[in-house]
C-alpha cells in the first residue's frame, strides 16, 4: 500500500512525535518499504485462524485483595523532571 504524507502526519500526531521534514521523508520511505514487504502476509488465507495474542496457556493469574504498604513518596517522585507539593508538575492542562 502507499503510505501518504497524511498517514505520516496522522500517525506521528498519534505517537506524539514532531518529525522534521527530512525525518518525515526518510521514515516515510522506510515504512513504505517495510509495509510493502509486510504485505506478503496478505497472500496467506487466515480467514479461519483465531488471532493469537497470548502464546502461553496460562489463564486466571490473580492476586489476592490484600494491601501492601505503598512506596515512600520520595521514591515515586525522585526521578521526575519537575515536581511540586508532592506531585508531578506539568504545564496547565486545558480541557
Amino acid at each position: 500500500m502507499i503510505i501518504t504524507d497524511e498517514i505520516i502526519e496522522y500517525v506521528s500526531s498519534l505517537a506524539r512525535l514532531d518529525l522534521n521534514a527530512e525525518e518525515k521523508i526518510k521514515i516515510k520511505g522506510e515504512i513504505e518499504k517495510i509495509i510493502d514487504y509486510m504485505d506478503i502476509l496478505n497472500t496467506l488465507d487466515t480467514a479461519d485462524v483465531e488471532p493469537m495474542s497470548h502464546v502461553l496457556p496460562a489463564v486466571n493469574v490473580f492476586r489476592e485483595d490484600e494491601v501492601v504498604p505503598s512506596y515512600p513518596r520520595d521514591e515515586i517522585l525522585k526521578n521526575a523532571p519537575d515536581s511540586d507539593e508532592g506531585a508531578f508538575r506539568v504545564p496547565k492542562t486545558v480541557e
Binding site: N42, T46, E50, P51, M52, V55
Partner: peptide, 12 residues
Amino acid sequence: AYYNKALQVKAL
C-alpha cells in the same frame, strides 16, 4: 490488515 493479521500468522 496488519496487527490482527500478524496475530493470525503468529498462530500459524
